[in-house]
Nucleic acid binder design. Structure first.
Lengths: 332, 332
DNA sequence: ATGAAAGCGCTAACAG
DNA sequence: CTGTTAGCGCTTTCAT
């Protein structure tokens, strides 16, 4: 493989000139540029990013931290991230932490060792102290999940309001006994969504039934099944369920079917995220749509701004309630 | 950020010695090693991979090529890849081509420019000529999809046999009118799976009904719905469907429900891949399990062997028929 | 408009 | 066991 030296020799110019051509500087005469371009073609030369990166002290790589690649919620965000990243000549290192601090540390090391120029963290289980430390020397943006007052800019939605609207929708179609399948309240979004749930109930004068709130360890399908099983075993079971992720909701759906009950006539279900799969279930799932793709694009733009030393403000994006079959029709 | 020079100065040794400590060479006296380690700690030094990579002419990054990140089939493979990669101090660049040659080329450029040391391609739409060219100078492994006689080693399953077994299962539970929802036959796996389908029918003396074979552009949910719609509109509709991906099968499931028919009593359904979602549907999906995680780990090992100049043989892994609700019970 | 030369941070060959 | 030094491939300042 040819290097810049050989190209220079072939074109009878200096390596500096070759470099100038490579980087599209306009201080090169047309004639010289031609010569260089021919030499490049003739030698099949490809500039090495290893040399360039060392010289520029950059890797042109972003670290994207997610808890699990199996959760479709993140995939759409990643698409947004990737689109903007590529357009700016960056690439992404997709890092799945499995909520494992050791694993997380392997990835953070990549940044410490200059293999990545910045971080977009979507991991709610991230060690926020480490993140804060890292943010002193590196550009970091939090996406979706965040920590208030950490000084790390974030892009997210108004979880409290989204939750409020989901529950209000259930109330408006006639439900009073509404359960909440929430995740562990150590997560900010879980606390926020619970608040929205409570606010909606209060607004309509519905008494909170603490048996109707089930907490799950993770946001997966099985967790939704187990939670729903508990709810179905209650003496007075709910007529509607709001689950804070589509995967949880789909698990609930499955469990309801297993009990030979019908959605939405026996129990209505609302999910959260609008993952692709929420439209494939039977019945299709009413859910809160997050602007995931946009969230990804915004996060990258914020990150690049941050790397360029600009002042970066956190951003709250809009969400939307998508009514589908799992709540359609008036409840009587 | 401190560099190796400053550490050397602080420890009053040469940079070579620091490098030796960094790389765990045992030619350093205990006393010196201590000094160096203290200096590293004191200065909060982290070795830069940019320097190391340039020096070693490696990036320690693998390029993983997939057509779409939304297809869950690839995710489990990726987990396998990542596990082995990390254990060998590599990281992965996950690249979604969207079956777009331009996009593909951006990623191949990464290899040409030394930003990646090797490629694992899982993209059936990959330009095989480009791949062959690239394979002259770079280590490449094909995973799942491959090209016979390309000289590029691959790891995959026996698609013909897997398909044969799926169809045989349907026959054995009493079906004769078995449809095939296949993808475009420009893909090798599609041709192989069709062969298996035909072989099973022939073995049981069932005449092939060409109306029962539907080809789809992609392997997605909607494609499954459309294909199933066509089948349901046939005068003599099939009593069983074998779809070559779970997503297709789930689409078929949905369409069958929409027609107020019941699975499996009206129509039995078999999918392919055993993605997580195949267990979340109602009914759960009978499917062919591919050893996806293992496929990923094997692919990386092959890649690393290849990079080390070893002779690498292609590998065929085992598959398994997983019978679940969508075909359970004797068909009458 | 072009070239010479320094240097990004590291490793390894060689010398001692 | 340790130090000196060249050099990986590139960009950029400073001359000219």
């Amino acid at each position: 493989m040819a290097n810049i030296q050989e190209v220079a020799k072939q074109a009878r110019v200096s390596v500096a000139t070759v470099s100038r051509v490579l980087n599209g500087q306009n201080t090169v005469s047309e004639k010289t540029r031609k010569k260089v371009e021919e030499a490049i073609k003739k030698l099949n030369y490809e500039p090495s990013m290893l040399g360039r990166n060392l010289r520029n002290s950059e890797s042109r790589l972003f670290l994207i931290l997610i808890p699990s690649i199996s959760n479709p919620f993140y995939l759409e965000i990643i698409k947004g991230i990737e689109a903007v990243a590529i357009s700016q000549n960056y690439n992404i290192l997709l890092c799945e932490t499995d909520s494992n601090p050791e694993r997380e540390n392997i990835y953070f090391d990549l940044v410490r060792k200059k293999m990545a120029d910045g971080i977009i963290s979507m991991d709610p289980t991230v060690n926020i102290e480490t993140l804060k430390n890292l943010s002193e020397n590196h550009a970091i943006i939090q996406c979706s999940e965040y920590e208030e007052g950490s000084g790390i800019p974030y892009v997210t939605i108004d979880n409290e309001d989204a939750s409020y609207r989901a529950v209000k929708h259930l109330i408006q179609i006639g439900h009073k006994n509404i359960a909440l399948i929430n995740s562990d309240e150590k997560y900010l979004y879980a606390r926020q969504r619970k608040m929205g749930y409570i606010r909606a109930l209060e607004e309509y004068g519905i008494t909170l039934n603490s048996q109707f709130i089930i907490l799950t360890q993770h946001l997966g399908f099985e967790n939704g099944q187990h939670a729903m099983k508990k709810l179905l075993n209650l003496h007075d079971r709910p007529t509607a369920v709001f689950a804070v992720s589509d995967l949880l909701a789909i698990g609930a759906l499955k469990e309801i079917h297993a009990s030979r009950l019908h959605v939405p006539s026996d129990i209505a279900v609302v999910g959260f995220d609008k993952i692709d799969f929420s439209n494939m279930t039977n019945p299709t799932l009413t859910t809160i749509a997050q602007p995931m793709y946009k969230m990804g694009t915004v996060a990258v733009k914020m990150l690049i701004d941050k790397m360029n030393g600009k002042e970066v403000e956190s951003i709250i994006l809009d969400h939307e309630l998508v009514v589908r079959e799992s709540t359609s029709g008036q409840f009587i």
